[in-house]
């Protein structure tokens, strides 16, 4: 029987890239999923969940792609999210292989940590170091609610990518 793993994996990663593009469109659609002025960031939790199932290499590359999408929509310098998400997704993939159990609770912690770190660095480089008046208010009224709102989507993404991983794995013939 012919080994089709490479073909199936290519299809899978293309699907993931398309899915991330779709999430970017949803994330940037004006007023969509917005509650009291707070919109969730969907790409970061999705990328971390992908890295949990797909490992450090595919996770890292898809992390870089997701980060580039974040950079496209955001007002940070191009590369800011891409570099950070590449590193975070690679670290997540390695962490799952060597140190951490792959379960829903850890997914929430890992995604929460990644979101908190990204948002804090965003705040630090774009507001904190510039000494804007009342800049701390942004952390409380804007960044924190956005992180909490984004974490709500982690169980959904964790389940979705777990299911898709199993689905594509079942199609592999070795």
């Amino acid at each position: 029987m012919k080994n089709n793993r490479r073909f199936i994996e290519t299809i899978k990663y293309c699907c993931y890239a398309l899915f991330l593009t779709g999430l970017y469109v949803i994330q940037t659609t004006p007023h969509f999923l917005e509650i009291s002025g707070v919109k969730p960031g969907l790409i970061v939790p999705a990328v971390i969940c992908i890295a949990m199932y797909e490992g450090e290499f595919a996770g890292g590359l898809l992390g870089a792609y997701g980060g580039m999408l974040c950079d496209l929509g955001s007002y940070t310098i191009f590369g800011f999210h891409a570099i950070l998400l590449l590193i975070l997704a690679t670290a997540t993939g390695l962490g799952i292989i060597y140190f951490i159990k792959n379960n829903r609770l850890n997914a929430i912690f890992l995604c929460g940590g990644a979101l908190a770190l990204l948002n804090f660095l965003n705040y630090f480089f774009y507001f904190g170091i510039w000494d804007y008046e009342n800049a701390w208010m942004l952390l409380v009224t804007s960044y924190l609610p956005a992180v909490l709102c984004s974490i709500l989507f982690v169980p959904l993404f964790y389940w979705l990518f777990g299911w898709s991983n199993q689905y594509f794995e079942s199609k592999v013939k070795e």
Binding site: Q27, T28, T29, P30, H31, K39, P40, G41, C70, G73, S74, Y75, T76, N119, N122, L138, S142, A146
Partner: peptide
């Protein structure tokens, strides 16, 4: 056509 979820000042695309 787009408003970024991370922006605090209603910037848009």
């Amino acid at each position: 056509i787009g408003r970024d979820s991370t922006d605090r000042f209603y910037s848009f695309t």
